[in-house]
Design a protein around this nucleic acid. Structure first.
Lengths: 225, 225
DNA sequence: ACGCCACAGATGATGCATCATATTGCGCAT
DNA sequence: ATGCGCAATATGATGCATCATCTGTGGCGT
């Protein structure tokens, strides 16, 4: 857990929150890691107040938990919880893909294809962090194309909870993390809502097998590390 | 907006947050109402810090918004947003009902029927606030029966955004707010997942027509129900 | 030697002082 | 009389001091 980059503009609490979110999504925190408000305040160069605000928000998102009143930690994803989140994502990202198929413009589809191209490159170069970020970008493009801001927010929270897990799993995912994205784009081009929904569901279930395997490895009985 | 009851136990911020949530769900705030941290601190008898924490959380939930950096208000629900939330609820409460149908025990079904009975009584007595609360209880029993805590949290947030609207709409809803609940319970008794999902979707769409009418009356152009 | 208790350090919660800024209202000039 | 501008006030943001509590270690007693 190295230092964080500068916190620009607007609101300190929000800036810290965003920085911590990024850290979470990039796998800079491991499950079990403990966060200390004073330490973070020092790292960010602020007082404890904005850090506390950010921590509270993250805790509200269940992206971090208070193991005891004074022990703030990155939680371990349990299998049941992952399966539940996956079931929710299937419903919601399915909705996003279906709607996006009806509204997607040529420009937006080009954007998606650019993401895929960049992702291929990241994969070829073995840049996991970038690949993971692009995978996420792809998924979040769908509710955005669909024009569903509330859905975007809900999904963001779910991804936040999966953050440390996803970042870790992407390493083992390999091509399966991207292969299933192509049928999604194809369905969008055909304005095929049902097809797009099925394609993204495939991605979540099949492409996400590496994630599930990762959960099982950590959650199951033998919890080492 | 009268005074709030005592804030017991644990964490002041959380207590204030919960109190404000309750206020929101009970329709004690109207869209456009302005919240002032110092005033609330006085009403709750705390310093501004816990109030600020709670406000921040509510803002994060988009249950309240910062119109300007210093102007905290209850937002007006717009039609597009309501439709989006409804679409999400259809997916998610459908999932909850379907799962609940497979897992519901006799005891849990009894609980649901108790809620319906109380709701009938509240309706007969014209106790709208109680009726609205029981309606909410019914909906939240489903993800709870299904054993889906993450889903419960997601739905809670969505309901929070609809809080002032729902409380207001229940007045005009009349029996349609409860009629569609009975088929849900019947489907649960039959362990009919698809039936339960369809029944709750009916409730959201048909029972919720009063809500939509309410949104339309306040929001954009005067469209009919 | 082992176990219990006490004290010190750590750490989040709370309260509050201060700051920056936006809003509002009054006064002055035209 | 009206409009512009300045100042007073309101109000959220930030920082920080203090408090309560938990943790862990070391010493004392058995």
């Amino acid at each position: 857990m190295s230092e964080f980059t500068t916190l620009d503009h607007e609101n300190l609490s929000t800036a810290v929150y965003n920085a911590l979110c990024d850290g979470l999504m990039q796998g800079r925190f491991q499950p079990g890691d403990r966060l200390k408000i004073r330490d973070l305040a020092e790292q960010f160069g602020t007082s404890v107040t904005p850090i506390r605000d950010a921590i509270l928000r993250l805790a509200h998102d269940e992206a971090i938990t208070f193991r005891s009143p004074r022990d703030i930690r990155i939680p371990q994803m349990r299998e049941a919880r992952y399966r539940e989140i996956r079931a929710i994502r299937i419903r919601l990202e399915g909705l996003a893909a279906e709607t996006a198929a009806h509204t997607a413009t040529r420009t937006q589809i080009d954007l998606l294809e650019n993401i895929l191209r960049d992702n291929e490159k990241a994969l070829a170069e073995g840049d996991r962090r970038k690949g993971s970020a692009l995978n996420q970008s792809f998924h979040f493009m769908l509710p955005q194309i669909a024009g569903l801001p509330v859905l975007t927010g809900v999904l963001r929270r779910l991804w936040l909870q999966m953050g440390p897990l996803i970042a870790d799993s992407y390493l083992q995912g390999g091509r399966t993390m991207i292969d299933y994205h192509y049928p999604v784009v194809e369905a969008l081009k055909r304005h095929d809502g049902a097809g797009a929904a099925m394609a993204i569901i495939d991605d979540i279930q099949l492409g996400g097998q590496a994630v599930l395997a990762n959960v099982l490895a950590h959650d199951g009985v033998a919890v080492n590390a």
